[in-house]
Each structure stands twice: as C-alpha cells, then as structure tokens.
Design a protein around this nucleic acid. Sequence first.
DNA 1: GCCCCCGATCGAATCGATTCGAGCACCACG
DNA 2: CGTGGTGCTCGAATCGATTCGATCGGGGGC
Lengths: 356, 356
Amino acid sequence: MPTLSAQRTTLADVAAAAGVSVSTASLAFSGSGPIADRTRERVLEAARTLGYSGPNPLGRQLRRGRSGIVGVIMGDVLRRAFRDPVTIQVLDGLTARLGPLGLGVLLVPGPHDVSQPPVDPLVGTAAMDVAVQMWGGTTDDPVLETLRNRGVPIVLVEGTPQPDVAVVGIDDRGGMAEVTRHVVDLGHRRIATVTLPFDRDRVEGPADAARLSGIAWEISRRRLAGVTDAGVEPTVVWETPASLVEHGAAAGRALLQGPDRPTAVICQSDLLASGVVLAARELGLRVPEDVSVAGFDGLDLPWLAPDVLTSVSQPLAAKGAAIGDAVADLLAGRDAEERVLPVVLRVGTTTGPPPA
Amino acid sequence: MPTLSAQRTTLADVAAAAGVSVSTASLAFSGSGPIADRTRERVLEAARTLGYSGPNPLGRQLRRGRSGIVGVIMGDVLRRAFRDPVTIQVLDGLTARLGPLGLGVLLVPGPHDVSQPPVDPLVGTAAMDVAVQMWGGTTDDPVLETLRNRGVPIVLVEGTPQPDVAVVGIDDRGGMAEVTRHVVDLGHRRIATVTLPFDRDRVEGPADAARLSGIAWEISRRRLAGVTDAGVEPTVVWETPASLVEHGAAAGRALLQGPDRPTAVICQSDLLASGVVLAARELGLRVPEDVSVAGFDGLDLPWLAPDVLTSVSQPLAAKGAAIGDAVADLLAGRDAEERVLPVVLRVGTTTGPPPA
DNA sequence: GCCCCCGATCGAATCGATTCGAGCACCACG
DNA sequence: CGTGGTGCTCGAATCGATTCGATCGGGGGC
C-alpha cells in the first residue's frame, strides 16, 4: 500500500535510509546549499525506494512562513463571475504569470447573494500570501477590511484606489470617451447607455438622479464618466444587475421601442452590447442602419458573426500579467505602484451613421 | 503599523497578554474542549488589543496534517476550459458544497499546449488534501500518476474508471442514445455528428476509421457510442479541437454544403451545436426546416433566442455537489462509490421532421 | 611537512499551532 | 469533615521541514 506509506514517510525516514542527517537530506531536495553529487544521488535513491515523493509542503510552508498561495476573490458568485469572459481571461493571464513564481491560485467565492454574509469564511482563515480582489472593492468593503486585519497584502482590480492597496486597472474612462466620440462623430445625438451594476443591490432599469449620484462601484462610475467626458448627456442611463447577454437584451427591448428611441446605444460591456444587438434584431431593427451599438472589452463574440461589435479592447492577458507583477512586488516587500493599462478603440460593423 | 505586528503576533503572545497558557488560548479560538466563558473572553480581548486575527493557518495545517485545500486540475488551458460554461457551472456547484466543509479550491492549470510538459509543477508540490481532475484522465495520465505517487486521493470527473480513483460522471451514453432516437423518430436518416476532441492532439475534421478506433478521452467515446446505440451510423463523424462555438461553426460550414448533406447534425456539446446553427443560418438554411440540430449539456444560450436548442440536460450544479460529496468521502477515509448522474432530453425548436 | 582554508555534513533551534494526559481547585454529597 | 467528582487549565510533545552556525576532513599553498 504505497498510498499509506507515502503519506507517512518523512524526510527523516529518507535521511535514515540514506545514512545522512536530516539537514543533508533537505539540501538534496531543495538544491540550495552545497552538497556532493554522490550524496544527493544516495538520498534521492533512498527516497525512491521508500516511495517518498518530496518534502511535505505543509512543513515547508510553516518554516518558510509562506504558503505559495494567492487568494483570488471573485467579486460575486462564481457562476456569474465566470460567465464573464473578461474575468476568466484575466484569471488565465494571472495563472500564467504566477506559475513560474511557484504560486497557485486559491479561488475564494464572493457572497452568493445579498442575504448572505458578505465575507466568505475563507477570506479570514485560508492561508494566502497575497489576496487579489477581482471586482468591486469600495473603501469600506468588508472583505478588504478582513484582509487588512490579517495583514494580507492586497491587489485590487478595477476598484477604488486606497492606501496600502496595490491597484491594477485600465483606462476605462478614456476608452469610453473615445468610443463615445466615435459615435458622436458619426452624427448621433440621441444616445442611450447601458451600464454595469452600481452596487450590491443590482437594480435593473433606468437610473434616476438619486441612483446616479451614489454609484458605489468604481468601474461603472468611471465608464459613465467617460461618456460625459465626450460631451454626451445620455437620453437614458439603463442599469443592469449583471454583465450578461440577457440583461443587455432586456435593456435593448426597453430602450428601442417608441418614436424617439435613441439612434445609438453605448454599453459598458460587450456582453450587454451583444444583448442589445440581439434585441434590436428581434424588434426588426437593422444594426447599424437603424441603430448603432457599441460595447466595451473587445471580446470575440462568435455568435454575432459575421458582425463585429464596435468596442473598446482591453488587454486581458496583459491585465492578468500586470496583476501577477503586482503580486510579485508585494511579495518582495516592494510597494506596488498603480498600474493602468491602455485600451484601444475597435471600430466594427455595429456602428454607422444615424438613420436620416 | 498593524500590518507588520499582525503578521508577527502569535498565539503565544496573546496567551501571555491574557495571562493564560498557550493551550488555553488555543481552546479559546478553536472552540473544541472545555473553557470557561470568562477565560475565553479574556483571551479574545487580548487578541483584539494585540491585533491578532486568529491562528496562523500554516501552523494549524501542519499540526492537523490537513491543508483544507482541494486541488482542481483543469484538464486544459484555463482560458479554454473556462470558456466552457459546463466546467464553470460545475466548479460553482463544487465550491458551494466545499465551502461549508471549510475547504477551498486551488486552481491547477493543465498544460498550455502539447509542446509543454504535461504536468504543472503545482500538481507535484502544492498542498492539497484531495485532487479533482475535471476532464480527461486516461489510465496512463501523467497527472494521475504524479498524484498517486504523492498519495493524494483523486476524484475523476468524466474520465476512465480505474482503481483507487473516485469517479463522478453522467449518463452520457444513455442521453446521447435518447436524443439520437428523438431525431430518428422524426424521420431523419442522413445524420452527421460533431464530437469533442478525441485526445491531446486535437485534430479538426472528419475522423477516419483509424482515429475512430483510438479515442483516448472517455467522454467523446461514450457519447459517440450513444449514437450507435440508437442504431445510427453517422454519415460523417466530425472531430473538433475544442468545445467552442467557432469550431462548431466550422464543422457546420463543412458539413452542410452539397446535395447529400445530412438532414440532422447531432453534436456532443451545446456550444458546438450552436456553432452549427449559426453556420446553417449563414448558409441560408432554415433550422429546423432544412436541417435539424441537437446538442448536449442543456445550457441556456441567450444568443440563440428565441430558438431553444434541442439538447440533453445534465445537472451541472448537482454534478458539482456530487464531486464535493466524493471529496468528503475520501477525506473521511471512506472509499467513494462511482456516481453517475441522470440526464434528461430537452426537446427544443431546433429539431423537426426532415425536408421532404 | 605543516597549516590554513574550503567544501561537505551535521545538530539543534525554529516556524505556530493542536492535543492529550495530568493536575488542581472547588463543590456537593455522605 | 472527608471523599469523589466535575470542570478548567496547564505542560509538553508533536506535526515536517528549513536553516544557521559549528564541525570535520582533506587538499593545496608555502
């Protein structure tokens, strides 16, 4: 039963079998420190015989004071967050950068819904050398609070800059201004906008002044500010509960009815925008002849083919890598500067001049 | 600087401050064992004063011999695996079940491509109490080999049953047979099928006898067998490199040309099927009047709306939960029985009688 | 031929908590 | 007033590896 013995075999056993001290055996595995080739061989041979597959990570971690784990806090239900290709691709870029550093990603779920406690127990108890919060992160975020108490360094993605927290983001505001100008330059004047959620309440529908003045989530606020920067006062600001195709479709159905419907809809995400496109088609409107639609993120959306969504491309893999760099900085004791990645306007086939 | 002191404060410090022994202080936190309320209060008070946020997980883990971590091995690049909603939703169900058990999920990437070493270093070195392999898992899988050497118990999802490994899966074969019979009953005779990858080579195109006889990945093999079970000999078996909309579209474009094109296409995943539907529309074919399309998984595909894909629904959250149960079994030292979850045919709007 | 130095190896302390058995004080009962 | 029991608290061992300083032996330099 190699399973059982493998679990119980320790470095001390191997050392004894090889006739060396524990410290020497340790050197044979870690490679740090001087050791004669012959000795190392002998130790490895003994390990092989005993079915010892290397030092127990738990012992190593305790001694080193490092777990080699980066906790990634998904700002929301896994399911929802994961249907967001943006998060996924960033996560992919992150793991790619973290792997060579010998670091692994521990998935920490956000709260499942408003009724549940806002902080997953793992946030307070799991071993992690650094935490990455993928979304949200207002100043009074209880998750950040907990992490700070533990003394875990934090990387915040697309959140509110604050002391003692490394921030990684993109130029949302500039990108949004750029795509808005593109739409304005085409001649549009009646422009509506569809936004990401404002806060944990996740309201759906047109936002009134009260809601507009209290947008908690940085990303929604910044992207909205971009529209204003371009000199546009949206006819409607439509708030969605999540960045999903179906919410975009619902927004589209609501916005694109009636005589004074907007001639262009600018969305804060590609998923929302593709929902609007589908809704427009459903209503018998041609895109872009009858209505122009723009998104944000620059995703490949195979199901819109042959159309290409006009959008603002953000460098997803690079963003993941930047997060990884920030993590490395914090681990090395450097304090990480704010990283803001550039975005670029992608003009597709879903925007054109407004109908005459 | 609460950060620094928090990191360095230990249970011993708290005990000293509270005027109790370390063991008593430990009891105050763990809650196991008898302790007077007043004493506990005193300890917690001292902890608060010192900015101690609870026992260091590393120490606890070493002592307990448990890390509280479940390693989840994504059978493929994160990016690709994550674009697969099936994996995501299962993962969500899994974390939901694992949370209450105090377990966290460590993401372990599969190899990025064929040229890279097939086993991520984390598989061999990261602390994990149980490993879950989400995909693949042939008998000679080097990942499983490594895990076995380490003595880490394994849960295999949709893989080849083998000794010492807990298996969770669904009734692929039965489900596929059912949907195939549905199509046959509608009157179809010329039926093509689009499959998931056969192996790490990820070939794209029609599969010849040689390839058909050597399908390494269990899931593709079983779903194909389901078609045969229903008495259907597919006119073409089209292999794809991954379960993605664009590969389905490519298959559709190739299959749906020419005079003796199939009247129905049965796909091994919904993503592939939706690609086929899009390709059909692109070619000016009506679905289901000109061609019927069926998928597998039972996903919500908002972009096909108002169409609903005929498919075989698998219980994704329940699958995640079943994996969690298997994990719990293994941790408790029970050996887990094989879990096979039922599937159910969902007749949508994409299948109908063949053209006259 | 002697001494010094360097490379290899070893011992022992340490990381931070958990846990078991022993000890102790106090209460209740006889 | 003595004894048995109960309920807390404490000491010490332990989990498995890393690492620093000390030791030992052999080869090279003078």
